[in-house]
Design a binder for these strands. Sequence first.
DNA 1: CAAGAATGCATGAAAATTCATGAAAGAAAA
DNA 2: TTTTCTTTCATGAATTTTCATGCATTCTTG
Lengths: 169, 169
Amino acid sequence: MTTDADQNDAARLAPEADAAPLPAPEQEPPLSPGFTDDYLLYLLAAASARASAEFHTLVAAHGLRVPEWRILACLASREGLKVTELAHQTLFDQPRLTKTLNVMERAGLVLRRSDPSDRRLALVSLTPEGRARVEPLLSLARGHEAQVLSRFPAADRRRLKAFLVALAR
Amino acid sequence: MTTDADQNDAARLAPEADAAPLPAPEQEPPLSPGFTDDYLLYLLAAASARASAEFHTLVAAHGLRVPEWRILACLASREGLKVTELAHQTLFDQPRLTKTLNVMERAGLVLRRSDPSDRRLALVSLTPEGRARVEPLLSLARGHEAQVLSRFPAADRRRLKAFLVALAR
DNA sequence: CAAGAATGCATGAAAATTCATGAAAGAAAA
DNA sequence: TTTTCTTTCATGAATTTTCATGCATTCTTG
């Protein structure tokens, strides 16, 4: 269903140091504590990858690839971005963005126009077609987000997002 | 310095709906609220990418590529993982992991041995060389993590990690 | 104004990644 | 036990991504 990362699940959540004299009836899961299990950067990557995987299936179902979705979603609120700005926003490096934009421009989703006041700049915007394609996904994204956040009490939702903003500097 | 994603920074943190009758003295940053600025999956991706970028320079400085670091870090605590398990842990899909393991095996960092009780399984472990290469990075990783987390009060650190674990399911 | 430096984006070749599929081993069914 | 199904990992071809660099434009400075 999802992209990947949802295969085995076996045992997880090994208890801390429980009772010492336990005869350990099962020898199957040797699960050690694991460096990564408590390492912030890993937890971030895992949370991002796993939480996004669900939504990415919706993106694919709408005929878009994930990088395209990201670009369209950024442009939906901020039109006329410079390529460099958009690259920063989308977390892509510039050559990658340029090449993805080429494809999307050919597909009629985005539009590049050169800034008359500085002809080095290429300002990127959505075409009507691009907007039409991204709009339904924006709704789905909000719905999916609400669903994911529904696991947390409202106060925690704000706190969580604040953490993430702080981590992104 | 870092991999990417540290270019312009201009303004960020647009205030919510502040005062309506603001004459908006500056017209420079047209920064709209921005869908992505409050979208959980984007905040996760951005936090992960930006926070990791710093550390990734250390990885590169130690002659490892990021995927290799991730694999070694997972194996550091959990030896003898099946390829599929390791793929799940590292958030890579299986073919990608297999190919990266090929390179790392040739480089003498990891070792694949086939499980005698089920010869389909390839159990992956660190070689002494692999362990020697990853160990200093594990220390650096802990240090870097501590530095990142130092921005937050101790109670929040636990809460943040708990959030992330919950998000990763 | 004419270098020279800097900035913004594009591009090409090499490398990595993806997707579908292959092959080997084990499990289940007949 | 022989088929058939399933699981696990590897692989190949096509696509993407990366890294360094090129080209055009603007900015700086003498």
